[in-house]
Protein backbone atom coordinates (compact mmCIF):
# COMPACT_ATOMS: atom_id res chain seq x y z
CA UNK A 1 0.00 0.00 0.00
CA UNK A 2 1.18 3.47 -0.83
CA UNK A 3 2.36 5.16 2.37
CA UNK A 4 0.69 8.55 2.12
CA UNK A 5 2.27 11.17 4.36
CA UNK A 6 -1.01 12.61 5.50
CA UNK A 7 -2.36 9.25 6.56
CA UNK A 8 0.84 8.34 8.39
CA UNK A 9 0.75 11.61 10.23
CA UNK A 10 -2.92 11.18 10.98
CA UNK A 11 -2.65 7.77 12.55
CA UNK A 12 0.46 8.51 14.57
CA UNK A 13 -0.48 11.97 15.77
CA UNK A 14 -4.08 11.31 16.60
CA UNK A 15 -3.16 8.01 18.21
CA UNK A 16 -0.67 9.76 20.48
CA UNK A 17 -3.17 12.51 21.14
CA UNK A 18 -5.90 10.14 22.21
CA UNK A 19 -3.44 8.17 24.30
CA UNK A 20 -2.24 11.26 26.10
CA UNK A 21 -5.75 12.58 26.55
CA UNK A 22 -7.05 9.33 27.98
CA UNK A 23 -4.09 9.05 30.33
CA UNK A 24 -4.46 12.66 31.49
CA UNK A 25 -8.06 12.04 32.37
CA UNK A 26 -7.36 8.69 33.94
CA UNK A 27 -4.55 10.11 36.04
CA UNK A 28 -6.77 12.96 37.16
CA UNK A 29 -9.65 10.73 38.04
CA UNK A 30 -7.23 8.48 39.85
CA UNK A 31 -5.92 11.51 41.72
CA UNK A 32 -2.44 10.96 40.47
CA UNK A 33 -2.17 14.09 38.43
CA UNK A 34 -0.30 16.99 40.00
CA UNK A 35 -2.43 19.99 40.62
CA UNK A 36 -0.58 22.19 38.21
CA UNK A 37 -2.74 24.31 35.98
CA UNK A 38 -0.12 24.89 33.33
CA UNK A 39 0.89 21.27 33.27
CA UNK A 40 -2.72 20.24 32.79
CA UNK A 41 -3.23 22.99 30.24
CA UNK A 42 -0.17 21.88 28.32
CA UNK A 43 -1.38 18.29 28.51
CA UNK A 44 -4.83 19.02 27.11
CA UNK A 45 -3.49 21.46 24.57
CA UNK A 46 -0.94 18.98 23.30
CA UNK A 47 -3.58 16.22 23.07
CA UNK A 48 -5.99 18.37 21.17
CA UNK A 49 -3.32 19.77 18.88
CA UNK A 50 -2.21 16.25 18.03
CA UNK A 51 -5.74 14.97 17.58
CA UNK A 52 -6.94 17.90 15.57
CA UNK A 53 -3.85 18.14 13.42
CA UNK A 54 -4.15 14.43 12.75
CA UNK A 55 -7.77 14.67 11.83
CA UNK A 56 -7.19 17.71 9.68
CA UNK A 57 -4.30 16.12 7.91
CA UNK A 58 -6.44 13.10 7.18
CA UNK A 59 -8.76 15.38 5.28
CA UNK A 60 -5.87 16.68 3.18
CA UNK A 61 -5.77 13.56 1.13
CA UNK A 62 -9.46 13.78 0.39
CA UNK A 63 -10.51 14.73 -3.07
CA UNK A 64 -13.28 16.87 -1.62
CA UNK A 65 -12.45 18.00 1.92
CA UNK A 66 -15.36 20.45 1.79
CA UNK A 67 -17.72 17.50 1.77
CA UNK A 68 -15.99 15.81 4.69
CA UNK A 69 -19.10 16.20 6.82
CA UNK A 70 -20.79 13.59 4.71
CA UNK A 71 -18.41 11.08 6.16
CA UNK A 72 -20.39 11.19 9.39
CA UNK A 73 -23.48 9.69 7.85
CA UNK A 74 -22.62 6.04 7.39
CA UNK A 75 -21.70 4.94 10.87
CA UNK A 76 -23.93 1.93 10.55
CA UNK A 77 -21.55 0.18 8.20
CA UNK A 78 -18.37 2.15 7.74
CA UNK A 79 -15.51 2.18 10.23
CA UNK A 80 -14.24 5.36 8.68
CA UNK A 81 -17.57 6.96 9.32
CA UNK A 82 -17.62 5.57 12.85
CA UNK A 83 -14.18 6.91 13.41
CA UNK A 84 -15.31 10.33 12.26
CA UNK A 85 -18.36 10.26 14.47
CA UNK A 86 -16.37 9.03 17.42
CA UNK A 87 -13.63 11.57 16.90
CA UNK A 88 -16.16 14.33 17.07
CA UNK A 89 -18.07 12.77 19.89
CA UNK A 90 -14.89 12.31 21.89
CA UNK A 91 -14.39 16.06 21.97
CA UNK A 92 -17.52 16.32 24.09
CA UNK A 93 -16.80 14.28 27.23
CA UNK A 94 -13.08 14.89 27.10
CA UNK A 95 -13.56 18.57 26.44
CA UNK A 96 -16.06 18.86 29.25
CA UNK A 97 -13.77 16.98 31.53
CA UNK A 98 -10.79 19.09 30.51
CA UNK A 99 -12.68 22.33 31.13
CA UNK A 100 -13.79 20.97 34.44
CA UNK A 101 -10.27 19.92 35.30
CA UNK A 102 -8.75 23.25 34.40
CA UNK A 103 -11.33 25.70 35.50
CA UNK A 104 -13.96 24.10 37.71
CA UNK A 105 -12.11 21.28 39.38
CA UNK A 106 -14.47 21.24 42.27
CA UNK A 107 -17.73 21.13 40.39
CA UNK A 108 -19.71 17.92 40.46
CA UNK A 109 -16.72 15.64 40.99
CA UNK A 110 -18.74 12.45 40.85
CA UNK A 111 -20.55 13.28 37.68
CA UNK A 112 -17.38 14.59 36.13
CA UNK A 113 -15.53 11.41 36.92
CA UNK A 114 -18.25 9.64 35.03
CA UNK A 115 -17.88 12.08 32.13
CA UNK A 116 -14.13 11.50 32.25
CA UNK A 117 -14.68 7.79 32.18
CA UNK A 118 -16.87 8.16 29.14
CA UNK A 119 -14.15 10.33 27.60
CA UNK A 120 -11.51 7.70 28.21
CA UNK A 121 -13.77 5.12 26.73
CA UNK A 122 -14.48 7.35 23.75
CA UNK A 123 -10.74 7.79 23.18
CA UNK A 124 -10.26 4.06 23.20
CA UNK A 125 -13.19 3.50 20.90
CA UNK A 126 -11.97 6.20 18.53
CA UNK A 127 -8.55 4.63 18.31
CA UNK A 128 -10.18 1.28 17.88
CA UNK A 129 -12.31 2.65 15.06
CA UNK A 130 -9.24 4.02 13.37
CA UNK A 131 -7.63 0.63 13.65
CA UNK A 132 -10.71 -1.06 12.34
CA UNK A 133 -10.63 1.03 9.18
CA UNK A 134 -7.53 -0.98 8.35
CA UNK A 135 -8.33 -4.20 10.10
CA UNK A 136 -11.60 -4.49 8.22
CA UNK A 137 -9.89 -4.44 4.85
CA UNK A 138 -9.89 -8.07 3.93
CA UNK A 139 -7.87 -7.65 0.75
CA UNK A 140 -4.90 -6.48 2.82
CA UNK A 141 -3.58 -9.47 4.66
CA UNK A 142 -1.18 -7.37 6.70
CA UNK A 143 -4.07 -5.38 8.10
CA UNK A 144 -7.04 -7.63 8.37
CA UNK A 145 -5.96 -9.43 11.54
CA UNK A 146 -6.25 -9.10 15.31
CA UNK A 147 -2.76 -7.65 15.66
CA UNK A 148 -3.84 -4.42 14.08
CA UNK A 149 -6.47 -3.13 16.53
CA UNK A 150 -4.33 -4.35 19.41
CA UNK A 151 -1.36 -2.56 17.95
CA UNK A 152 -3.22 0.69 17.45
CA UNK A 153 -4.40 0.64 21.03
CA UNK A 154 -0.97 -0.29 22.34
CA UNK A 155 0.74 2.35 20.27
CA UNK A 156 -1.73 4.98 21.47
CA UNK A 157 -1.07 3.94 25.03
CA UNK A 158 2.66 3.85 24.44
CA UNK A 159 3.00 7.16 22.65
CA UNK A 160 0.54 8.75 25.06
CA UNK A 161 2.40 7.54 28.13
CA UNK A 162 5.83 8.54 26.82
CA UNK A 163 4.42 11.98 26.04
CA UNK A 164 2.82 12.22 29.46
CA UNK A 165 6.02 11.18 31.07
CA UNK A 166 8.08 13.81 29.36
CA UNK A 167 5.43 16.42 30.08
CA UNK A 168 5.56 15.58 33.73
CA UNK A 169 9.33 15.61 33.70
CA UNK A 170 9.43 18.88 31.85
CA UNK A 171 7.26 20.42 34.51
CA UNK A 172 9.48 18.99 37.18
CA UNK A 173 7.43 16.05 38.24
CA UNK A 174 8.61 12.53 37.99
CA UNK A 175 5.86 10.03 38.49
CA UNK A 176 7.20 6.57 38.87
CA UNK A 177 3.89 5.10 37.97
CA UNK A 178 3.92 6.93 34.65
CA UNK A 179 7.50 5.95 34.04
CA UNK A 180 6.62 2.38 34.75
CA UNK A 181 3.59 2.64 32.54
CA UNK A 182 5.63 4.15 29.70
CA UNK A 183 8.33 1.53 29.96
CA UNK A 184 5.76 -1.25 30.22
CA UNK A 185 3.84 0.10 27.24
CA UNK A 186 7.03 0.41 25.22
CA UNK A 187 8.00 -3.14 26.02
CA UNK A 188 4.52 -4.46 25.35
CA UNK A 189 4.35 -2.62 22.05
CA UNK A 190 7.79 -3.90 21.17
CA UNK A 191 6.70 -7.45 21.81
CA UNK A 192 3.57 -6.80 19.80
CA UNK A 193 5.52 -5.36 16.93
CA UNK A 194 7.95 -8.24 16.79
CA UNK A 195 5.09 -10.70 16.97
CA UNK A 196 3.29 -8.81 14.22
CA UNK A 197 6.29 -8.95 11.95
CA UNK A 198 6.70 -12.61 12.62
CA UNK A 199 3.11 -13.08 11.70
CA UNK A 200 3.62 -11.09 8.52
CA UNK A 201 6.72 -13.00 7.54
CA UNK A 202 5.27 -16.41 8.19
CA UNK A 203 1.84 -16.05 6.66
CA UNK A 204 0.42 -14.98 3.36
CA UNK A 205 -2.91 -13.85 2.18
CA UNK A 206 -5.32 -16.65 1.46
CA UNK A 207 -5.65 -15.10 -1.97
CA UNK A 208 -3.14 -16.08 -4.62
CA UNK A 209 -2.64 -15.39 -8.31
CA UNK A 210 -4.43 -18.67 -8.82
CA UNK A 211 -7.49 -17.72 -6.81
CA UNK A 212 -7.45 -14.20 -8.18
CA UNK A 213 -7.76 -15.52 -11.70
CA UNK A 214 -9.47 -18.79 -10.93
CA UNK A 215 -6.94 -20.48 -13.16
CA UNK A 216 -5.26 -22.55 -10.47
CA UNK A 217 -6.62 -25.80 -11.80
CA UNK A 218 -4.55 -25.31 -14.94
CA UNK A 219 -1.25 -24.64 -13.23
CA UNK A 220 0.71 -21.87 -11.63
CA UNK A 221 -0.25 -18.41 -12.75
CA UNK A 222 2.19 -15.70 -13.72
CA UNK A 223 1.54 -12.32 -15.23
CA UNK A 224 2.52 -12.10 -18.88
CA UNK A 225 1.35 -8.62 -19.71
CA UNK A 226 -0.17 -5.99 -17.46
CA UNK A 227 -3.03 -3.92 -18.83
CA UNK A 228 -0.78 -0.88 -19.13
CA UNK A 229 2.93 -0.49 -19.52
CA UNK A 230 3.00 2.53 -17.21
CA UNK A 231 1.70 2.52 -13.65
CA UNK A 232 -1.98 3.25 -13.17
CA UNK A 233 -3.83 4.49 -10.10
CA UNK A 234 -4.25 1.00 -8.71
CA UNK A 235 -0.58 0.27 -8.96
CA UNK A 236 0.44 3.59 -7.54
CA UNK A 237 -2.01 3.34 -4.67
CA UNK A 238 -2.03 -0.35 -3.91
CA UNK A 239 0.83 -1.86 -5.78
CA UNK A 240 3.48 -0.15 -3.71
CA UNK A 241 6.24 -2.60 -2.99
CA UNK A 242 9.30 -2.35 -0.90
CA UNK A 243 12.43 -4.40 -1.37
CA UNK A 244 13.09 -6.96 1.36
CA UNK A 245 16.51 -5.55 2.22
CA UNK A 246 15.15 -2.09 2.46
CA UNK A 247 12.32 -3.24 4.68
CA UNK A 248 14.67 -5.11 7.00
CA UNK A 249 16.79 -2.01 7.50
CA UNK A 250 13.75 0.11 8.19
CA UNK A 251 12.41 -2.43 10.63
CA UNK A 252 15.62 -2.10 12.61
CA UNK A 253 15.28 1.64 12.67
CA UNK A 254 11.65 1.36 13.72
CA UNK A 255 12.44 -1.09 16.50
CA UNK A 256 15.45 0.83 17.73
CA UNK A 257 14.06 4.31 17.57
CA UNK A 258 10.45 3.51 18.23
CA UNK A 259 10.75 1.20 21.20
CA UNK A 260 14.19 0.25 22.44
CA UNK A 261 15.88 3.65 22.54
CA UNK A 262 12.95 5.34 24.31
CA UNK A 263 13.09 2.69 27.04
CA UNK A 264 16.80 3.18 27.42
CA UNK A 265 16.49 6.95 27.36
CA UNK A 266 13.76 6.95 29.96
CA UNK A 267 15.76 4.68 32.20
CA UNK A 268 18.96 6.60 31.64
CA UNK A 269 17.09 9.81 32.43
CA UNK A 270 15.84 8.30 35.59
CA UNK A 271 19.41 7.43 36.51
CA UNK A 272 20.76 10.85 35.56
CA UNK A 273 18.00 12.89 37.11
CA UNK A 274 17.76 16.70 36.96
CA UNK A 275 18.40 18.34 33.66
CA UNK A 276 19.59 15.02 32.31
CA UNK A 277 16.20 13.54 33.06
CA UNK A 278 14.43 16.29 31.21
CA UNK A 279 16.74 16.07 28.24
CA UNK A 280 16.51 12.30 28.08
CA UNK A 281 12.71 12.30 28.35
CA UNK A 282 12.31 14.88 25.61
CA UNK A 283 14.83 13.05 23.48
CA UNK A 284 12.83 9.88 24.05
CA UNK A 285 9.80 11.59 22.54
CA UNK A 286 11.69 12.76 19.49
CA UNK A 287 13.39 9.43 18.91
CA UNK A 288 10.13 7.62 19.43
CA UNK A 289 8.43 9.91 16.94
CA UNK A 290 11.01 9.03 14.32
CA UNK A 291 10.65 5.37 15.12
CA UNK A 292 6.89 5.39 15.06
CA UNK A 293 6.68 7.28 11.81
CA UNK A 294 9.01 4.69 10.34
CA UNK A 295 6.92 1.92 11.83
CA UNK A 296 3.77 3.45 10.39
CA UNK A 297 5.42 3.93 7.01
CA UNK A 298 6.31 0.26 7.04
CA UNK A 299 2.81 -0.62 8.15
CA UNK A 300 1.68 0.69 4.77
CA UNK A 301 4.68 -0.13 2.66
CA UNK A 302 4.81 -3.75 3.73
CA UNK A 303 1.13 -4.28 3.32
CA UNK A 304 0.23 -6.01 0.10
CA UNK A 305 -3.12 -5.69 -1.48
CA UNK A 306 -4.76 -8.50 -3.42
CA UNK A 307 -4.97 -6.26 -6.44
CA UNK A 308 -1.23 -6.77 -6.79
CA UNK A 309 -1.99 -10.37 -7.70
CA UNK A 310 -3.39 -9.10 -10.96
CA UNK A 311 -0.25 -7.12 -11.63
CA UNK A 312 2.47 -9.65 -11.17
CA UNK A 313 2.74 -10.10 -7.41
CA UNK A 314 3.27 -13.74 -6.52
CA UNK A 315 1.48 -13.36 -3.21
CA UNK A 316 -0.50 -10.79 -1.30
Amino acid sequence: MHPAKSVIFFTTASGAGYGLLALLIAATIGGLFPADFWLAFAGYALSYVLITAGLLSSTFHLGHPERAWRALTQWRSSWLSREGVMAIFTFLPTGLYGLHHLFFPDLLPGVMALVGGVGIFACIVTVYCTAMIYASLKPVHAWSNGYVPMGYLLLALMTGSVLLNSLLVAFGYAATLVILLAVAALVAALIWKVAYWRFLDSTKSISTPESATGLGEFGSVKLFEAPHTEANYLMKEMGFQIARKHAAALRKIALGAGFILPVILILVGLYLGGIGLIAASLLAVIVMAIGIVTERWLFFAEARHTVGLYYGASHA
Binding site: L62, H64, L137, P139, H305
Partner: peptide, 27 residues
Protein backbone atom coordinates in the same frame (compact mmCIF):
# COMPACT_ATOMS: atom_id res chain seq x y z
CA UNK B 1 -21.76 14.47 -5.90
CA UNK B 2 -21.38 12.90 -2.50
CA UNK B 3 -17.99 11.26 -2.81
CA UNK B 4 -15.27 12.89 -0.74
CA UNK B 5 -12.48 11.02 -2.50
CA UNK B 6 -11.19 9.21 0.59
CA UNK B 7 -10.20 6.25 -1.62
CA UNK B 8 -11.14 3.79 1.06
CA UNK B 9 -13.44 1.89 -1.24
CA UNK B 10 -10.55 1.28 -3.59
CA UNK B 11 -8.67 -0.25 -0.70
CA UNK B 12 -11.62 -2.37 0.22
CA UNK B 13 -12.19 -3.82 -3.24
CA UNK B 14 -10.04 -6.94 -3.56
CA UNK B 15 -10.23 -6.82 -7.34
CA UNK B 16 -8.87 -3.40 -8.12
CA UNK B 17 -12.07 -2.33 -9.75
CA UNK B 18 -12.31 1.21 -8.46
CA UNK B 19 -10.84 4.14 -10.28
CA UNK B 20 -9.85 7.31 -8.59
CA UNK B 21 -10.03 10.45 -10.68
CA UNK B 22 -7.34 12.60 -9.15
CA UNK B 23 -8.40 15.62 -11.11
CA UNK B 24 -12.06 15.46 -10.16
CA UNK B 25 -11.23 14.22 -6.67
CA UNK B 26 -13.84 11.49 -6.80
CA UNK B 27 -13.99 7.77 -7.14
Amino acid sequence: DHCIGCKLCSWACPYGAREYDEDAGVM
